[in-house]
C-alpha cells in the first residue's frame, strides 16, 4: 500500500504552480506534465517510480506494484455538483476508437485551483467515461474518490518558467550572425483570412 501522507505535497504543488505558465503554451503542455510527474515521483518518499518516458498511458509504477496515471487540471473539482470537470483519458488524435484498454490501476488527479489531489481507480474512470470527438473523457464522482492531499499550503520557488523555456530555446539555437527582426512588407501580396469552418452568420460576415 502506498502511504500518501509520506508525500511532500507542499513541494509537489509548489512545482505545479511554478510551471503553470507553461500550460498556456501548447507546445509546452507535455513538458509541464512531465515536470509535475517527475516532481511527484521524487517527492514520494521512494514510493513511486516515474515510467512515463517508457510506458503508454501510465506515468508511475508504485512500490505496491500498481500502475498510476497523473492528470492535472485547473478547477478540476467543480464548485457545484458531485462530479469533476471532464478529464481526457485517451486522445486518439483522429477517429475515436471508444473505451481505451486499461493502462493504469489508479488515477492521481491534481486540482491546481484547490491545491487538492484525489485518487480514483480504473473502474471508476471507465464507468463515467464517454467519447467526445477524438477523445475518450471521464468525469469523476468526487464523493467516491479518495482525497490524498487537501488544500495544500504549497512552497513554490517562484521562477518564470516561460522565460526559462525561452532561454532554453535560444541557447539551443545559439547566436545567429546578422539576425534580422521580422518586418512586414508595406504592401503584402497575400492577406490570409482566417475563415472559421463553423460558426454563426455574424462571425462569418466579419471575416468573409
Amino acid at each position: 500500500m502506498i502511504d500518501w501522507n509520506r508525500f511532500n505535497w507542499p513541494k509537489i504543488i509548489g512545482v505545479m504552480h511554478d510551471i503553470e505558465s507553461l500550460t498556456n503554451i501548447p507546445q509546452c503542455r507535455m513538458m509541464s506534465a512531465h515536470i509535475l510527474e517527475e516532481a511527484t515521483a521524487r517527492c514520494s518518499d521512494g514510493q513511486l517510480k516515474y515510467v512515463g518516458d517508457t510506458e503508454i498511458g501510465c506515468d508511475f509504477i508504485g512500490c505496491d506494484g500498481l500502475r498510476y496515471e497523473s492528470k492535472s487540471t485547473q478547477g478540476l473539482i467543480k464548485k457545484k455538483g458531485p462530479t469533476t470537470k471532464k478529464i481526457t483519458l485517451k486522445n486518439y488524435y483522429g477517429k475515436c476508437l471508444g473505451e481505451p484498454e486499461q493502462t493504469f490501476d489508479y488515477m492521481i488527479a491534481f486540482d491546481s485551483t484547490k491545491n487538492t489531489v484525489i485518487l480514483a481507480d480504473w473502474d471508476h474512470c471507465i464507468e463515467n467515461g464517454d467519447t467526445e470527438d477524438a477523445k475518450y473523457v471521464t468525469e469523476l464522482d468526487v464523493n467516491r474518490c479518495e482525497v490524498i492531499a487537501k488544500d495544500v499550503n504549497y512552497v513554490a520557488i517562484g521562477f518564470d518558467a516561460q522565460q526559462k523555456y525561452n532561454d532554453f530555446v535560444s541557447s539551443c539555437i545559439g547566436k545567429i550572425v546578422d539576425e534580422k527582426e521580422f518586418v512586414m512588407m508595406d504592401d503584402p501580396s497575400a492577406i490570409i483570412k482566417r475563415v472559421p469552418l463553423e460558426g454563426t452568420l455574424e462571425t462569418f460576415m466579419m471575416v468573409a
Binding site: V195, L197, E198, G199, T200, L201, F204, A208
Partner: peptide, 9 residues
C-alpha cells in the same frame, strides 16, 4: 436561421 451555427463558407 439567423442564429444557425454552421459552415457558412
Amino acid at each position: 436561421l439567423n442564429s444557425l451555427h454552421i459552415e457558412y463558407a
